[in-house]
Write a protein that binds this DNA or RNA. Structure first.
Lengths: 343, 343
DNA sequence: ATGAAAGCGCTAACAT
DNA sequence: ATGTTAGCGCTTTCAT
């Protein structure tokens, strides 16, 4: 019943050349001055028999795959999952499909992934790049493949970036803690050279130094498995009872951190004030609710995909790479309130 | 610098026929009795110049795309995002890439999506099917395309399913609430004919009826936007103060429900005991922690992808469709504890 | 053991 | 306005 039709079959059935069919199907009938009557006849027939051109063949011929590659750190992380959802919606609307992968921040893996995507002739790339991937991105760029980077950037690579004002966000949040009378504020983060992580540290450190406070930075190793994050944080918080506040550098660390706090029975904010980067259901619903820096997820996604679609739609005109820096929102909640220290 | 090489270029450079190159590249050298020395020479050269076959052309020729289509309700839902991550890892290991989309439970959208995937000659399908999609799935099956369904099933369609024991899970959780002395237990769910949702209702209803209690079912309309879920739940809980327990039918409803409970200042479990389907960071960290039915996410994903890869690897042999039903875990926490009612 | 050539389904330059 | 034809890059049959 389903012997997949080809454009040849259609041409034969209709006694028309396949070129004509091709033109009509690609909306170039007008341009090629093909008779309205014929156009109708073809369209009607095509619809009737349910013919759909083989997009593999189209891609092979045209070099365009209509697929966008999305490379994030971890698709199961809510931040990236939400971005993925938004990007997907917009991409499908524009006739693009999304192929995705999680880099796990692994440079080697990401290199392989990029190579695979190239083989597939992906039209454009959206990447939250791991460290050390500069060359591979450069190479894409050199071949004129559009690349939009987000979440972190690669200072040496000239392409489009969507970022948030990481440095200011942590500066601001840290200052808030200081204003609440906190002095021993630890910043817990992943050990990472990624720009966004470094910028966050910078903002925190600046705020502390400005008030002559000693920055206290605790790094944990990135790992998808929560246990490997919970364990060092547990040890750390157990040991450093002198802390009066803690700033978690990402949502993942934050939710692990809260599990530790809960398990150790630490009182928030009286024993320990808490602030987190990234807002997230858990933080809003925790009790007390956790003060958090909220990234404008929709806006990030929107800018990313708009920028890319824009480049995809006008491949010829050169567009200067741009960096868009978005503002975050600081949601102050009970977890960082001044408690007893307000003299 | 990068004038993408083709197998022809390689053949020419090496003064060998492209057939030979193709055989060598596809590991059929032995079989074709090609000299070891030549094999080495070709492999070495290919590596040197970084030649990679154009997979579009391969796909066109072979009919295999090495792409798996993943269709979930919403990729930004943590349940699906986690499954996606696991499936991705396994698929990439086996040389398959994943193209995904969110159906949003929209039948028409899903039909379009399936059609698009077919055009792309996707090798296999993993689908959490919306209602009314039976025919489209049948049509895939008829063309011998492997399809694995999960999360809900389509009773009329004969293919592979990975499910959990929904009915027993809600029966069990409801019984637990009853044992704690609760009598007015509301079950809040999405209005949906999907099998898993219906099975959950059934389990709840059975448990209630068994103890001569009146089932109380509140349905809300599925919507990605939380506000449209929070609003009706707020109205409902405000009105029905006689309730002493509530059972949220999904993670999404659960987290919305908790927001309502928090906003209304309802005390858990003394005013209202709470149980949720799906476990989730929010439930574990809420205070009090929420009793929840945990789906074995990894196992689901593992079974799904194993089943599909299995079919993909042995396309010829007929395999009887199977339904795998996985057990859930019931995590009892403070939110459902008996409180004062224990006489 | 290696090569020639057909053809997967489509687009587009060229011809009429 | 419509048709002919040459590829896109690969796999595979068939011939040698």
């Amino acid at each position: 019943m389903k012997k997949k039709l080809s454009i040849n079959d259609i041409a034969k059935s209709l006694n028309v050349s396949k070129t004509t069919i091709s033109f009509i199907l690609n909306g170039r009938a007008q341009e090629m001055r093909i008779g309205d009557e014929l156009v109708d006849r073809v369209l009607k027939f095509v619809n009737e028999v349910g013919f759909r051109p083989n997009s593999l063949a189209q891609s092979l011929r045209s070099g365009k795959s209509n697929i966008i590659g999305l490379m994030v750190e971890d698709i199961s992380n809510p931040f990236f999952a939400k971005i993925a959802r938004y990007i997907e919606d917009r991409a499908y609307q524009s006739g693009y499909k999304i192929i995705y992968c999680s880099t796990n921040n692994d440079t080697k893996k990401t290199q392989d992934l990029i190579a695979m995507y190239r083989d597939r002739h992906i039209d454009g790339y959206i990447i939250a790049p791991p460290e050390g991937i500069e060359e591979d991105i450069e190479s894409l760029l050199k071949d004129n493949l559009p690349v939009v980077l987000f979440d972190r950037n690669l200072p040496k690579v000239e392409t489009d970036y969507i970022e948030i004002d990481n440095r200011f966000s942590t500066y601001n949040a840290t200052s808030h803690l200081i204003e609440q009378g906190k002095k021993n504020i630890a910043y817990i983060t992943f050990s990472s050279k990624q720009t966004q992580m470094q910028a966050r540290i910078k903002g925190y450190t600046n705020a502390m130094k400005e008030k002559n406070l000693q920055p206290i930075i605790k790094e944990v190793v990135f790992n998808q498995n929560e246990d490997f994050i919970i364990e060092p944080i547990t040890a750390y918080l157990k040991k450093h009872t002198e802390l009066d506040a803690v700033f978690f550098g990402t949502d993942h660390i934050g939710s692990c951190g809260l599990k530790v706090i809960q398990a150790l029975g630490i009182k928030v904010p009286s024993d320990l004030a808490v602030v987190a980067f990234d807002d997230y259901d858990v933080f809003k619903l925790y009790s007390p609710p956790i003060t958090a820096v909220a990234q404008p997820i929709e806006k990030i996604a929107e800018n990313v995909i708009s920028l890319l679609l824009n480049k995809l739609n006008s491949p010829t005109v050169y567009q200067k790479p741009q960096t868009i820096t978005l503002k975050t929102t600081f949601n102050i909640r009970a977890s960082s309130k001044g408690s007893l220290v307000t003299q």
